[in-house]
Design a protein around this nucleic acid. Structure first.
Length: 107
DNA sequence: ATCGTGACGAACG
DNA sequence: CCGTTCGCCACGA
């Protein structure tokens, strides 16, 4: 019998779901919590793999990069949506379009 | 097993 | 501050 060891993706989703409303975290942060401190890129890869039906249960918008900014290089519409969702949750973006970690960082 | 890819991150200039 | 470069990791072909 094989142990049901959860995939990296699943772990990432689980952690993302545990982010409380009104808070945000970074890819690197999730990487650390998942047990792979250097797998920040893989975290982004995992969230990108979210299907439309899945993104309703996983608050992907609460994950931003270490600079406190929305990371999308392309797919601008997605970035705008993310910012809108976060602002509706109470997250405040500063003049430089970044979030103040001291106020909203999780954990 | 090897290669290419990507919603990252830290270091440089 | 900004853009570039390099290193890391997981996944699919």
């Amino acid at each position: 019998m094989k142990s049901d060891k959860p995939n990296f993706y699943e772990i990432v989703y689980q952690i993302t779901k545990s982010i409380p409303k009104g808070k945000v975290t970074s890819y690197g942060r999730i990487a650390v919590l998942s047990g792979n401190p250097r797998a920040a890129r893989a975290v982004g890869y995992a969230l990108n793999a979210l299907k439309k039906d899945k993104e309703q249960e996983v608050p992907w918008q609460r994950v931003i990069n270490a600079s406190g900014a929305i990371s999308f290089k392309s797919d601008t519409s997605r970035a705008i949506l993310q910012r809108k969702l976060l602002e509706s949750e109470g997250i405040v973006f500063q003049e430089n379009d970044r979030v103040d970690w001291k106020l909203f960082e999780w954990p």
